[in-house]
């Protein structure tokens, strides 16, 4: 208990104190308390900075795309896997689809680059065949769909775990009863499966909302140079470039704090809505 408590106190709550940097012109050599206070100056500068709003817009846009296009995919795959009756095949497929999750982003991005890049496999074939090459990597317009494709490829399998666990809890007798009453596969899904796993889906959705502005730091950082900050800057990379690289720690922490507040508001709101709809939510 004590190590766990110490962990939370030091690395979670203790670290919160350092957020005062957001209200200072923080210089590492002058120290946390030696740096002058600037009041809301950092926030003022932040909200006047078009680059920040670009980053915020990109973040929100990518988050929305992920929610719409990525979030349902693991659920669909879980349902598909669940419907497989031959357990050997099911377990084999399950193991295979988990694997990409354990590949680091560096490798995943490099693989996409090797296949779809300007000098990659696809353009190599097209070029050799005398056809027009396609500009996918390095094309800012294609960047966001590319991101979603990468996330789907990498994390769909991993995302099925909790859904599968929820699905395994569904009482088989309900399916039998429904089938005897003449319900087809679609009705069985709609009236048996979905109500049974709905609390889990809602729980995951709320937890995802709290984290929604973290749209993949590494993934962006690795590909930002190829398409430029206009397309690829998100709040996390903005914080990194302004703070760690640029040395403007106060501004970076202000941006980070902004992100944290938005996340907290989203969780609170989503939880409230879940209660209204009669769900448990994350907390009461």
């Amino acid at each position: 208990m004590v190590p766990g408590l110490a962990y939370f106190l030091v690395f979670q709550y203790g670290a919160l104190i350092v957020n005062v940097v957001a209200f200072k012109d923080y210089v590492p050599f002058a120290g946390l308390w030696g740096s002058p206070w600037t009041g809301l100056g950092n926030f003022q500068q932040l909200f006047q900075d078009s680059a920040f709003w670009h980053a915020a817009f990109n973040t929100a846009w990518i988050a929305l795309l992920q929610l719409v296009f990525y979030f349902p995919v693991p659920l669909a795959l879980a349902l598909l896997l669940h419907s497989l009756t031959w357990s050997t095949v099911r377990r084999f497929v399950q193991s295979v689809v988990y694997l990409p999750h354990f590949i680091s982003w560096v490798i995943v991005v490099a693989m996409f680059q090797q296949v779809l890049g300007g000098t990659g496999m696809l353009n190599g074939y097209l070029g050799d065949a005398g056809l027009h090459t396609v500009d996918i990597i390095g094309n800012p317009d294609a960047f966001k769909p590319l991101l979603i494709a990468q996330v789907i490829w990498k994390d769909t399998g991993w995302g099925t775990i909790i859904f599968l666990a929820a699905l395994s809890q569904v009482d088989e007798q309900q399916y039998e009863a429904a089938a005897i009453d003449g319900a087809g596969p679609w009705r069985r899904f709609w009236h048996v499966t979905l109500p049974a796993i709905r609390p889990v889906v809602v729980l995951l959705l709320i937890m995802r909302l709290g984290d929604i502005l973290s749209v993949g730091f590494e993934q962006m950082l690795l590909q930002r140079d190829a398409v430029g900050p206009q397309a690829a800057e998100v709040i996390d990379t903005f914080v990194y470039y302004k703070g760690i690289v640029g040395g403007d720690y106060g501004l970076a922490v202000a941006a980070g704090l902004f992100k944290g507040v938005v996340g907290a508001v989203l969780v609170y709101t989503a939880n409230k809505i879940a209660h209204r709809l009669g769900e448990q939510g994350v907390y009461r």
């Binding site: 923080y26 210089v27 050599f29 002058a30 120290g31 308390w33 030696g34 740096s35 002058p36």
Partner: peptide
């Protein structure tokens, strides 16, 4: 834990 040096430099 206070500092002796000024931030401006």
């Amino acid at each position: 834990c206070t500092s002796s040096s000024a931030a401006g430099g």
